[in-house]
Measured scan of single mutants.
Amino acid sequence: GKMTGIVKWFNADKGFAFITPDDGSKDVFVHFSAIQNDGYKSLDEGQKVSFTIESGAKGPAAGNVTSL
Rank of each mutant, 00 (worst) to 15 (best):
F51M: 02
W9G: 03
G5T: 01
G46A: 02
W9K: 04
D23C: 05
K48G: 03
V28L: 14
E45W: 12
E54R: 05
S50P: 01
K14S: 14
T52W: 12
Y40F: 13
L43V: 06
T66Q: 13
F32H: 07
G15R: 05
P21M: 05
V49Q: 00
G56F: 08
T66C: 15
D38M: 10
L43I: 09
H31W: 12
G5I: 02
F16K: 01
D22V: 05
S67T: 02
A34R: 08
P60E: 13
V49P: 00
N64S: 09
D13K: 07
I35G: 03
T4G: 04
N37S: 09
G24N: 04
A34F: 11
S25H: 04
F29C: 15
E45Q: 12
H31G: 05
K26V: 09
A62W: 04
K2C: 15
F29N: 03
I6P: 00
K14D: 11
M3E: 02
T52L: 10
S55M: 14
K41E: 10
A62S: 10
A12N: 07
P60M: 07
Q47K: 05
G15D: 04
N37K: 08
K48W: 13
D13V: 08
P60F: 02
L43W: 10
F16N: 01
F18Y: 12
A62V: 11
V49L: 02
F10N: 02
S55E: 13
S55I: 14
G1F: 08
I19K: 00
Q47H: 07
Q47A: 09
Y40K: 09
S55R: 06
S33T: 11
Q47S: 10
F32C: 13
W9P: 00
V65Q: 06
F16R: 01
K58A: 14
N11R: 03
K58R: 08
G46T: 02
F10T: 14
G15I: 03
A17D: 00
F16L: 14
K58G: 14
T52A: 06
S67P: 04
D38Q: 10
L68I: 15
K41F: 14
P21H: 01
T66V: 14
E45F: 12
T20K: 10
K58T: 13
G56K: 08
W9C: 15
N64L: 10
F29Y: 10
A17L: 08
N11T: 05
G39F: 08
V30M: 07
I19D: 00
V7T: 00
D44N: 14
S42H: 12
P21A: 02
V65L: 12
D27C: 13
A61G: 12
D38P: 11
D13L: 09
T4H: 05
A62G: 10
H31Y: 11
V49F: 01
F18D: 01
T52V: 12
V30I: 09
K41D: 11
G24L: 02
G1R: 14
F16G: 04
K26D: 10
S55K: 13
E45C: 15
K48D: 02
G63T: 14
T52H: 08
G1T: 12
V65C: 15
K14C: 15
L43S: 01
L68V: 15
F29R: 06
G24W: 02
V28T: 04
I35R: 00
N37M: 14
N64W: 05
E54T: 07
A12E: 10
A34Y: 09
D44R: 14
L68F: 01
M3V: 08
A34G: 07
K14P: 02
D44M: 14
Q47L: 09
F29D: 02
A12M: 10
A61Q: 15
K26R: 08
S42D: 09
S25W: 02
S42L: 11
A34L: 09
N11L: 05
A34Q: 14
G59S: 08
K26G: 13
Y40N: 13
K14W: 11
K14I: 14
V28E: 02
D22M: 07
D23F: 03
G1D: 10
D13H: 08
G46E: 01
I35L: 09
K58I: 13
D23A: 02
V30R: 01
Q47C: 13
G24Y: 02
A17G: 15
